[in-house]
């Protein structure tokens, strides 16, 4: 664990010192997990993450450094880094995406070979959703679309579980598990699109009543 160049206290985060309350210069390329003083892993304690975010935000809040333009600028940069890191880590899919990237896994567009059966499934929902969108509220095409939701939710949960299994413990760089995990993540993206679509249909339906 590094120590503060100003007061020598042990640093929890490279962004600033909690003992002497000074923001510290940090490379912008530092891993979000490192900014939170955490070891990279897919499973994280969300509560702990938010607690640390709040704590470190207070240590490096730009308002505390209003008197010193240089420190204030540094505090602003570091606050931006901290917020960006929270965004990368808080939501499981973004966290998985981040871990795949740092482990050198394929990007989403590099894994196109989704199984035919899955793509057929996507095509089928898309047809049902398309018809529902064109139909009036309360009609059978709308009902048919809403019936998709439980199975989409179920499939999403199952795929997230698979991703968790693949990323825990974190696979080595270049391992096949990274490609498999990306394929699963891509599938979840398709599912999420359909679920978002369903949600907007549900809102339209509620409004019509």
């Amino acid at each position: 664990m590094a120590s503060c160049p100003h007061c020598g206290a042990e640093l929890e985060t490279p962004l600033g010192c909690g003992a002497c309350l000074s923001p510290l210069e940090v490379e912008t390329s530092v891993d979000p997990f490192a900014l939170f003083g955490l070891t990279p892993s897919f499973s994280i304690d969300g509560e702990e993450l938010r607690t640390r975010h709040l704590k470190y935000s207070r240590w490096i809040h730009p308002d505390y450094f209003a008197a010193d333009p240089e420190l204030r600028a540094l505090a602003e940069i570091n606050t931006g880094l901290l917020n960006g890191a929270l965004e990368s880590l808080e939501e499981p899919l973004r966290r998985a995406d981040h871990l795949l990237k740092v482990r050198g896994g394929p990007s989403e567009s590099e894994v196109k070979d989704m199984p035919q059966a899955f793509l057929m499934e996507v095509l089928e929902w898309s047809e049902v959703l398309d018809e529902a969108r064109a139909a009036e509220a309360g009609t059978p095409p709308r009902e048919a679309a809403f019936k998709l939701k439980p199975s989409l939710d179920e499939e999403r949960t199952a795929r997230i579980q698979t991703i968790t299994g693949l990323l825990e413990p974190l696979p080595e760089s270049g391992s096949e598990a990274l490609t498999t995990a990306r394929r699963e993540l891509n599938a979840v993206r398709y599912l999420d699109r359909a679920l978002r679509e369903l949600e907007s249909l549900r809102l339209a339906e509620a409004e019509a009543r």
Partner: peptide
């Protein structure tokens, strides 16, 4: 049947 995961097209 082909898909583009980055934009969700199928």
């Amino acid at each position: 049947v082909v898909g583009a995961p980055e934009c969700g097209d199928v």
